[in-house]
Design a binder for these strands. Structure first.
Lengths: 215, 215
DNA sequence: AAAATAGTGTCTTTCAGACAATATTTA
DNA sequence: TAAATATTGTCTGAAAGACACTATTTT
């Protein structure tokens, strides 16, 4: 089957979407788990299509970023016996994230203590991958609203990386990456107004050396 | 199913093991392909166990390094219809690599032009992963014989990365990584004898910043 | 001694880290 | 004008790159 770790940033903190196991019977009936589903070989060209369909059906969202994470297998992960789950992770900006409902909740990634099956391992793997890629790429752009200030982008990086970044170094690096475009607008937060940016279209592709993080 | 990219370095060049499809019927009967097999849920605890078993049965080797690569899925990859393959890659030193036989051959990775199914994609993904990890880790140690000189190790890095490395910088980096141990011995190649090293036991774990490659 | 290969010293350049200085707002 | 926030300048130190120099063999 395919499981999807859907991540977004809600008021500055990384959250994961959990879906209620209603259609699925035992085990873990009614528990909150990662949204997932079986491959429909008739409609899904490949497993990424399955992930897209799961996202659409269980979270009603079309994610701008979706990447295969890892495949989790074994006898131990499901009480019913040997199983395999091809895990994907998706990043969506807050304004695109579906609202919580009776079958969908958003949990702070760092607060999730236990999940059915090995879903906690899957979640941790997704968070680790996101953090790792964030340190040398522009991946967090997929978590941003359409326009944003450099300070806002920097604080998203800081959230994901769990550490402070030098404003100077961060600005330099974003400039090198050349993935931001000024809108011409600016917005004030009680001091000098900050310029507003939008992501260029080839955003996620951009990568650079490491060390966004202060040692 | 599980497919394994088994890599080794034969006289300085990266080679991949291909296995003859005899047991498998159509399609591609008798063709050379990546060794693979179905999961045996009774004997395999997880898919990595399957990969180990495939390596043992089809190449008669126990690999010191084995890592999940990616899962390849879809309708397009097998003429018989939708399928999934959890791909792994393994690194073995030349002295451990099984000899070629009527069901096993070693091909230069860069010379392989076509393979059954999407095995060429899988091979390319493995080579890319190896190259990428080599640029910031000690992964190539898994390709080395029990003892080796710094120059030999450097030339393995150069082979994998397809580029020259500065001897000075390379020596400095290996020192920082602190994964080599002098044997006390040395060996001469017609000039000053080179000190012999062996890998410390926590070898593959070591990682460092990028830029082993000269820009 | 010359040739070959290994190993080290060190200068230069680049870049990250730190932080100060300047700029542009609102209160 | 003071306070707040954004943005840029620039000093410093560490590490990468380049390359010459020293060391230890064989022929």
């Amino acid at each position: 089957m395919v499981d999807v770790v859907l991540l977004t940033l809600i008021s500055g903190e990384l959250h994961v979407a959990l879906h209620k196991r209603l259609n699925e019977k035992e085990p873990y009936f009614n528990a909150w788990a990662l949204p997932g589903g079986e491959v429909h070989t008739q409609e899904d060209q490949d497993a990424m299509d399955t992930a897209r369909r799961v996202l659409k059906q269980k979270a009603n969202v079309v994610s701008p970023y979706l990447e295969q994470l890892e495949t989790f297998t074994g006898v131990a992960r499901d009480p019913r016996g040997w199983s395999a789950s091809i895990a994907y992770y998706a990043l969506v900006p807050e304004h695109v994230a579906p609202a919580a409902s009776d079958v969908l909740i958003w949990s702070k990634v760092d607060d999730v203590r236990s999940l059915p099956f090995d879903h906690l391992d899957i979640l941790k793997a997704a968070a680790t991958r996101l953090r790792s890629k964030t340190s040398y790429s522009a991946l967090p752009l997929y978590l941003m609203p359409p326009v944003f200030t450099l300070t806002e982008l920097r604080s998203v990086y800081e959230q994901v990386l769990k550490g402070k970044l030098e404003p100077r170094g961060f600005a330099r690096r974003m400039e090198e990456l050349d993935i931001l475009e000024e809108t011409g607008e600016s917005k004030s937060e009680g001091g000098r107004p900050a310029r507003l940016y939008r992501a260029k279209h080839d955003r996620g592709a951009a990568q650079l050396g490491p060390s966004l993080v202060t040692r």
